[in-house]
Amino acid sequence: MGQRLDFERPLQELEDKIKELHAFMEEKKVDLTDEVSRLEKRLSKMEGEIYENLTAWNRVQLARHPERPTTSDYIDRIFDDFLELHGDRLFGDDEAIVGGIATFEGNPVTVIGHQRGKDTKENLRRNFGMPHPEGYRKALRLMKQAEKFQRPVIFLLDTKGAFPGKAAEERGQSEAIARNLIEMAGLTVPIICIVIGEGASGGALAIGVGNHVHMLENSWYSVISPEGAAALLWKDSSLAQQAADTMKITAPDLKELNVIDEIIPEVKGGAHRNVEEQANAIQSALSKSLEELTQLTKEELVDHRYEKYRNIGQYTFVTDTIGLK
């Protein structure tokens, strides 16, 4: 079942009680099936109540669950023949981003994603999934390679942000992100982006300009992390829970704001509860997107992306407000 989060504690308690009863029945050979089924009903009702009414902060917690599947977990399950490719040919190989060639349902694709570590040791190697410029430039190299050979590119987004460090600034973190935005705008192959965990700011967007952008139900995507927003706006990072709400960062929020295309449903309780099932859900969303996008010509793909982003934003005019409001 994995590690439980604070808001799941009532479920945990009930599950423990059911387990106890089972054990008791075994031991004492008494029949308590009525009691057990009553509790099981209560459990399933409570699960419904909790998981169908997740707050924004609950979703942030799920997106950060230590056992939440990462890019590699999904690559292993969704793609075949994956061959990882390394390096930006300019400076080095940033393991905070993985990328390579693969087949998806028999067709060649390029797949690239942020890569967190599963434990401290791997996190150090992968810099907690926070890329340096060379990570973004590796992604750029691989997407241009995909364009040359006319295969779609699939991006999996999962980062707390581009790394804020001295070396990153020296090597042009800003330019690396900005360059990717421009090049993704013009890429003549289908681009599908899926936010699988955390999508923080420019560090996420740098591999996030797609024809289709989907989000897992319990992922988040925003201009800044809830903690960052709370610190910046209210000078108090402990107000992160409130910021998660105010900043409108969840998949349903982004759908409402017309920033994303589809919400990919998650396994009840979060993606980590059943990675296979979650991978299947992602695969079918990808399959649908690819079927749609591979119908478009190179020009249509670029125009499609242009229209998509050209229309994001809300504004009004001074003259409109006078007399009307």
Binding site: S201, L205, V209, S222, V223, I249, Q314
Partner: peptide
């Protein structure tokens, strides 16, 4: 996120 998307 709308501000973020202005970059795109």
């Amino acid at each position: 996120v709308l501000s973020l998307m202005q970059m795109a």
